[in-house]
Design a protein around this nucleic acid. Sequence first.
DNA 1: ATCAACTTGATACGAGCGTATCATCGAGGT
DNA 2: ACCTCGATGATACGCTCGTATCAAGTTGAT
Lengths: 195, 195
Amino acid sequence: MSETQRREQILDAVGRLLGREGLHAVTMRAVAAEAGVSLRLVQYYGESKERLLTAALERLADRSLQRWRTRMAVRGEGDVSEAIRAFFDEALPTDEDGRAFHRVGVSLELLAITRPDAATAAYQDHLRGLADHLAEVVGADPRVGGARARLIATQVMSLAHGLGSLLMAGNVTRAQAEEVVRDYLDRLGPGGTER
Amino acid sequence: MSETQRREQILDAVGRLLGREGLHAVTMRAVAAEAGVSLRLVQYYGESKERLLTAALERLADRSLQRWRTRMAVRGEGDVSEAIRAFFDEALPTDEDGRAFHRVGVSLELLAITRPDAATAAYQDHLRGLADHLAEVVGADPRVGGARARLIATQVMSLAHGLGSLLMAGNVTRAQAEEVVRDYLDRLGPGGTER
DNA sequence: ATCAACTTGATACGAGCGTATCATCGAGGT
DNA sequence: ACCTCGATGATACGCTCGTATCAAGTTGAT
């Protein structure tokens, strides 16, 4: 097995643990068991727990961004509000995959908030990448200015993040969340450009 | 020193630790040091770490809700969008207190998400209490129906939570956050009732 | 004053953590 | 064929964690 394959095998295990049980479940030994390798191998490729976590989080952030990018690319043109709706659809934790991703996100957020870590950089990179791309999609509509596209992107990301949290906590149902999104989009205007 | 004073002294120490350094910093020994008491006392009043954490989180949640309640009460009547603006003002982590509270919130969220804990109940209670009160304030306007008030409350809470995360991560500036809020309120309509 | 019940402190214990050590394996260049 | 060096496994070390234990101190009713 090649070095990069080994590395991916281990980083994937970290990702699965994060998604399934959260940050506290990620120990070197748990990663080894999840990946089906020895503890020594996790040390060998991960170097240290901090490096391992950072690498895994960067990988996950990259992946999510890329997944979102390809989804948008395949969708092609279309209404801006349609694109935003697709973003919500992708971002809200409605299935187990989405919930796992949300757990990863909250873990990363907590890490970034409470430690002057390298995780901070990973989190910021991820947010910036997402915001950039979303602003680009919104700004593709000629009726929307660049600065306004950025604002809407921030607003949409915020709403999606917060709504995701309420959804995960069981504080709102999926139907209620969808209604909130629909209402937001309605008020944004059919072209996403009103005001 | 009375029993309840002791209890508060210790729970406050937990709260300070959570706000300053996050969930991972809360150990029985760290709580003891922060409260200036012996480890044994923390055990004695906290019973166990899980109970201690749960009690501290419930206390913090209650407090924040109460603070928000009194703030709204003192404000008295006024425009609905004015009340929502005040909510954002209170909820967004713009000063160190607000940031500490946000750290507590994320800690609680992660706990609620990754463990079938008692923390889950505390988190849900807090969210529900906040949503109830916010919906009540919004619904006080005769132009807003009850169901719609609930929807707006959910939307506002989501936006505030998500925007707070972006703010904490340094992904948006305070000015940008305020602009996003202003834009949202503008689109909501002067009476908070449009559509 | 006495005794019982509750408080407080010092210390110990077992478990799990991240990390380090050391020996063995296996493939590739010479 | 040999030798070298990265890859892998088994095991150990030191630390911190939550919790338990035991003794001493304190308080209040009688």
